[in-house]
Design a protein around this nucleic acid. Structure first.
Lengths: 196, 196
DNA sequence: AACGGTAATTATCTTTTGTTAATGCTGGGG
DNA sequence: CCCCAGCATTAACAAAAGATAATTACCGTT
C-alpha cells in the first residue's frame, strides 16, 4: 500500500505518533484506482473524502460562465487531493477532480478522520502538519503571483517539480499559472531563444 | 480590551470553549499600541508573537533585490497579524510588519499558545479555526489571481472591504494586487469612465 | 500509410500592462 | 504663508499578454 520507506519517513516526522497509531489511521484508508479521465470527485458533490496520491496525476478544474476550463491545481505523487470546499466550508465542491494518468490513491473519509481525532488527540499533530503544509503551499504560490512575472512563475514551477512538466499538457499548465496557452508558448520560445 | 459583543461572538463560535477557557487565553494577551510607521515586526526577527488587530492598519511588506517595496498583505480590524515564516517554518521573518495608522493590538506569544494547547486540547478547536481561516483567505486570494483579471481583482477587493480603500494609499494596494500604481490608476479611470 | 482529432506553435492584431517621465495635488514643516 | 516632498494622475512609448485564426506537429485509429 504505502511502502515501508515512506512509513518510516512519516513515523520520524511525528515522534508523538506510535506505529500502532499510524496503523490505525491507515486502516481507515482504502486503495482506489482511477483510469485516465475518471473523476476522483465531481462538481456539486460534497464528498468528505481525502486522497493521498501514490502514483499518477489529478487535475482540479472548474468551468467558468464563459465555458472555459480553469485549472486550479495538480496533485501528483505524495501530495494530497481533497475538496477545498468541503474541508474549509463544508460546501459541495465547485471543482472537478479528474485523473490525467492512471492514478492510484489511498482514500479516507474526512469525517472518519475527524472522529478519530476527537477520540485520539495525538492525531491532531498529524492533521496540523498536513494543514500547515497546505497553507504553506498556498501562501508560497500566492507570493509567486505577487512577486514574480508570468515567465519567472513558469520557471520556478518547472524548477521545483523536476520531470513533471513533461507529464502536463501545456494548456493546463498555462491555466495553472494564470496565463493563456499562447502566452505559455511564447514564454517557452523566449526562454529557448535566450539560452542559445 | 476586547469588547463584550465580540467576546460573545467568539464564545458562540466555539461551543466547546468555556468562558473560563477564553479568559485563560486572553490572560496570555497583552495590549500593544503602535504609532504610524512603527514596526510590529521587522525582517530577520524570529518573533513568535501573534497579534489580533483591534483598531488600525498594518502593512506586511518586503524589499526585493531591485529595491522595490512589495506589499504582501494588510491587516486591519479583527484580523490576525503574525509572521508567516515563523508559524509555518519557524524561520526568521522575511517581511516587515509596519503600522500605517495608529494601531492597537492584542499580542500573544505563539509559544505560550502552543504550550497552552498541549495542556488544554480544547483550545485545539480554536487554533484549527484560525488556521482554517488563514487557509481559506489564502486560497480565495489565490483563486482571484487565477480566475480574475487585475481589474476584476481590484473590484472584488474593494467590494469585500467597504471603506478600506479610502484608508490605503494606492501604491500599496497596487502592489497587493500584483500590479503597478500606474496601472491601478488606469483601472480606476476606466471604471469611472464606464460608470458614466 | 493515410486519416482525423487534438494540442502546440506561429502569425496578426488589439488590449493591457510596464516603464519612465512630466504634471498636478496635497499636507506638513519651516 | 510658502515651499517641499510624496503621491496620484496623465502621457508616451515599449513590452507583454489576450484573442482569433492559420499552420504545424503529434498521436492513436483505421
Amino acid at each position: 500500500m504505502l511502502d515501508p520507506e515512506k512509513l518510516q519517513h512519516y513515523l520520524q516526522l511525528f515522534p508523538t505518533l506510535s506505529g500502532d497509531d499510524l496503523f490505525q489511521l491507515l486502516s481507515l484508508a482504502r486503495p482506489r484506482k482511477l483510469e485516465v479521465g475518471e473523476f476522483f470527485m465531481r462538481e456539486g458533490e460534497s464528498s468528505p473524502s481525502l486522497g493521498y496520491v501514490l502514483e499518477g496525476l489529478i487535475r482540479t478544474w472548474h468551468c467558468n460562465e464563459q465555458g472555459e476550463e480553469l485549472t486550479l491545481s495538480l496533485s501528483y505523487e505524495d501530495t494530497v487531493v481533497a475538496s477545498h470546499d468541503y474541508i474549509l466550508y463544508k460546501h459541495p465542491s465547485r471543482f472537478m477532480y479528474q485523473a490525467m494518468e492512471p492514478t492510484s490513491l489511498l482514500v479516507m473519509s474526512y469525517d472518519d478522520i475527524e472522529s478519530l481525532m476527537a477520540k485520539h488527540p495525538s492525531f491532531e499533530v498529524l492533521r496540523h502538519y498536513f494543514i500547515m503544509n497546505l497553507l504553506g503551499a498556498s501562501v508560497k504560490r500566492l507570493e509567486s503571483f505577487i512577486l514574480l512575472s508570468p515567465e519567472e512563475r513558469y520557471q520556478q514551477w518547472v524548477r521545483e517539480r523536476p520531470g513533471l512538466v513533461q507529464r502536463v499538457p501545456g494548456k493546463y499548465l498555462a491555466s495553472l499559472l494564470g496565463i493563456t496557452p499562447v502566452s505559455l508558448s511564447r514564454i517557452r520560445s523566449r526562454i529557448a531563444r535566450a539560452k542559445r
